[in-house]
């Protein structure tokens, strides 16, 4: 199974995981190991000046795991651009998971702001991975603007609803010139497998693992699901048919 390549950088795993909402940093670390992921997302936030807090980075082996800073909770292109620049300085890489959010309740992207921020950040030398709708036209515009990959949602962030519009994901994969990463909406392993069977190059998730009753076991389930889905996609599934076709020979049946 070939590696995932984004902007010339090679990743062994096609599963990208988050670092938020785990019961503890230790459990997060164990999940990262069980998932096999070699890229994780992180958020950029103000340092708590008033008290000493445990550093997230003490629990991520950055010699093995690539950090992808996000611009979560940014509602304007300007805020996302500002956050991306801070993330670059904090992390010393020019990659950004670009989010420009348009609605608090659904956390759906503001595609107008997203496209604007993509253009600016590409010009500023960033490798931009925008989180977007499952809209093939928007994905094409983002790729044309210089996005290194497109990250259509499967369903709203943290919803666990699974891939709501599989046909669009297929179309996006068929049309996109850049890797397609299904980002958000995965609830359980079969959702991740479906995304990969549709042709996604990778899947990004956080809540599905962090919020599971046994997060470490779910991380392993997701690793296997992503691998299984990728293999099934490459193997080429049989066409769907309405009626049966026997698997065993019809000749030589006893008593015939």
């Amino acid at each position: 199974m070939s590696d995932l390549v984004i902007a010339g950088r090679t990743f062994r795993s096609r599963l990208i995981v988050g670092t938020g909402k785990y019961p503890s940093h230790a459990i997060m670390k164990a999940c990262h190991e069980a998932s096999g992921a070699d890229m994780v997302t992180v958020a950029v936030r103000r340092v708590d000046i008033s008290r000493k807090t445990e550093s997230l980075l003490d629990y991520i082996d950055t010699s093995k795991i690539f950090l992808l800073p996000n611009t979560a909770a940014c509602f304007t292109a300007a805020d996302a651009i500002r956050t991306a620049h801070l993330g670059r300085e904090a992390g010393m890489s020019n990659w950004v998971k670009l989010e420009v959010i348009g609605d608090e309740q659904t956390l759906f992207p503001d595609n107008e702001g997203l496209l604007e921020a993509t253009r600016v950040l590409v010009k500023d030398g960033f490798v931009v991975l925008p989180y977007t709708n499952d809209d093939p036209v928007m994905c094409r515009k983002l790729a044309d603007a210089g996005a290194a990959a497109v990250m259509p949602l499967g369903a709203p962030i943290g919803s666990g609803l699974g891939i709501q519009n599989p046909n669009n994901i297929r179309i996006i994969r068929e049309q996109a010139k850049v890797p397609v990463i299904v980002d958000a909406g995965v609830g359980t392993a079969s959702d991740a497998a479906v995304a990969m069977e549709l042709g996604a190059d990778a899947v990004l998730m956080n809540t599905a693992i962090a919020g599971a009753t046994d997060p470490v076991m779910m991380a392993r389930a997701m690793k296997l699901a992503v691998e299984a889905g990728r293999l099934a996609y490459l193997a080429g599934r049989i066409p769907r048919k309405l009626y049966a076709s026997a698997s065993s020979p019809l000749q030589g049946v006893v008593g015939s």
Binding site: V42, R46, L86, G158
Partner: peptide, 26 residues
């Protein structure tokens, strides 16, 4: 502020400073 400029960048009266780090996120 680039890390290389931390020593030379002076903070004075009325300045606005933001210090950020990485926290858990998706």
């Amino acid at each position: 502020v680039k890390k290389a400029a931390y020593d030379s960048s002076l903070i004075t009266d009325g300045d606005e400073v933001e210090i950020v780090n990485f926290v858990g996120g998706g």
